[in-house]
Structure formats: C-alpha cells, structure tokens
C-alpha cells in the first residue's frame, strides 16, 4: 500500500474542470442535440456531394451523345439518365451546387443587410426606425413570388445563379432585420451600451462593436433559416421557368422536367431532385433549431 505524497493528494482533490468559454459551452450544448448534429453531418455531405462530387464523377451535367437516353439507375449511371441523354448523377450534383450557391449568397447578403438595418433601426429608434419598419411592412404586403418572378423574367434567357441570389436577397433580409431589431431594442437600454456611449463611442462603433456581436445568436439562427428560404424560393422560381435557365440546371428545373414521372418507371427522375431540396431545407432547419437551443442563455445543460 503506497501512500500518496501530500502534494499529490492535494492535486487529486483540486477541482479539475476546465474553464469554458461561451463558444465552448454553445458547442457542447449543440453537440448534445442529436438531431441537429446528424443534420449538420448530412448537410456537410450534401455540400461535398455538390462541390467535390463533380471532380470525382465521370459525367458532367451536359448532354453527351455517348450517353444512352432513358436508362434506369445502374452502375454506369447511378441516378439513371434522362430523355435527352444526360447523366442524372452529374446533373444532380450540378443542380445542387447551383441551388446551394444561391442559398449561401442569399444567406450571407441578407444577413449582413438585415443585421445592419435591424441594428440601426433598433439603436436610433425615432424616425429612422419608423421608416425602416414601414419599408418592411411594405415588402411584407408585396407578393414576393410575383415580384421576384417579374424581375427574374426580365433577365430572361440569361438568368444565372447570381441573378437569382440578388433577387432573393432583396426580400430575404426582412426577417433578419426584424429579429435583430427586437433584440437591439432591449440591448440598447443595458448599462454596457450606456458605458460605451459615456466613454465617447460613436454610434457606428457601438452598433458594430457592441450591439451586433451581442445579437450573434439571433443572426446565426436567421442565417440558417435564410438558406432554407432561398433553396425553396429558388427552386420554385426555376420550376416556374423564371429562375436559372438551361443549359445550366438547378433542382427546380430537374423537377419541372420530370413532372409527370412520379408514378411511372422514371420515378427516380422526380424523387431524387425533390429529395435533395427537402433534405437541404430539412437539415438546415434542424441545424438552426439546434443552434437556437444551444445559444439560448436560459437553456440549462439538462435536457428535460
């Protein structure tokens, strides 16, 4: 029986838990949310499928004379081929990539606009707030799909993915702005903002250095929701023929081309792009939900 030296026993009794920063805590809470973690993994896999896949796969999304048309899924063409002789795996990769590009740009653009506009409105209050809020009211009343379609239709045959991203970002920032404003309205009354103002901080400094960082959780969550919004809106417009135009492709276009096939032998042409849209929107929503739970300060570490 060996006895511990006094020093060692002291060490053994010491509290060994490490100090955890805010982000470490959030990460821990997020990783407890099983559904959110699984969704994150699936989402990353989809992104890899869309952007790394084309580098590994033989066929691209274009029509090739060597590809036989209307082939059922096989080893050569895992997702089959369409009427015109396109390998659907290549097409699905390209379509997913295009839709994701739109979604990421919309999420980034509308989050930046929304965060700044929302913070400005909430911080200055008064007429600035009134004007900005009236603008969001107005945009709420305008039928989004019709106006987006009108703008997209005007670009006509030349519509590329960045056009779509731009159009969707015009409408996308609304919800972010509202959420950030609501948060800023309560934050601006806090002492640390008062202190920053007393120390001579300019409005711009307070907004960018104090207010926006403190609304990070709201901003991140609404950014994830923007991705889902953009994927659904982009594929809807493409389905109506007002989005990305062929020869380029997108998930909406693939579904449009396979409209009547849901219950015949070409069913995979209809379900694969549809499943892609659903999977992206679903996983992104779950990740957003997990992030919201993880960032909620009222949340305890215990899951009830």
């Amino acid at each position: 029986m060996s006895k511990l030296t006094p020093a060692a026993s002291l060490e053994a009794e010491a509290i060994t838990s490490k100090e955890r920063g805010q982000w470490a805590l959030i990460a821990r809470r997020f990783f407890r949310h099983r559904m959110a973690v699984a969704s994150l993994i699936v989402f990353v896999l989809i992104v890899a499928f869309a952007f790394i896949g084309p580098l590994l796969w033989t066929w691209d999304y274009k029509i090739h004379p060597e590809i036989p048309p209307r082939v059922s899924p096989s080893l050569d063409h895992p997702f089959g081929t369409d009427q015109a002789g396109r390998d659907m795996l290549g097409a699905a990769m390209r379509a997913t990539a295009q839709s994701l590009k739109v979604a990421f740009v919309v999420a980034l653009g509308s989050t930046v606009i929304g965060a700044i506009v929302g913070a400005v409105a909430g911080y200055f209050r008064g007429w600035v707030d009134a004007v900005i809020m009236r603008i969001t009211d107005i945009l709420f009343v305008i039928p989004f799909l019709a106006i987006a379609a009108a703008i997209a239709g005007a670009i006509g045959t030349g519509t590329r993915w960045y056009h779509m991203a731009f159009i969707l970002a015009i409408f996308g920032w609304l919800n972010t702005a509202r959420a950030v404003r609501a948060e800023v309205l309560s934050l601006r009354e806090k002492e640390f903002i008062e202190a920053a103002r007393a120390a001579g901080g300019s409005s711009w400094h307070i907004i960018t250095k104090h207010l926006i960082p403190n609304t990070t959780s709201v901003i991140i969550v609404s950014a994830t929701l923007q991705i889902a919004f953009a994927i659904l809106a982009e594929s809807t417009l493409s389905f109506l023929g007002l989005g990305i135009q062929s020869p380029d492709t997108s998930l909406g276009l693939l579904i449009q081309a396979a409209q009547g096939f849901a219950f015949n032998e070409f069913w995979y042409l209809f379900y694969i792009p549809g499943a892609m849209v659903i999977l992206i929107a679903l996983t992104v929503n779950f990740v957003g939900d997990g992030l919201r739970d993880a960032m909620d300060p009222r949340q305890t570490m215990v899951r009830r």
Partner: peptide, 13 residues
C-alpha cells in the same frame, strides 16, 4: 419540420 422543408410545387405535383 418535413412540411416546412417541402417545396409546395414538388408536393403539389
């Protein structure tokens, strides 16, 4: 969540 992720046009078809 599934309904939220479902594109109206796809489900309609």
């Amino acid at each position: 969540f599934l309904a939220l992720a479902m594109p109206t046009f796809w489900f309609a078809v």
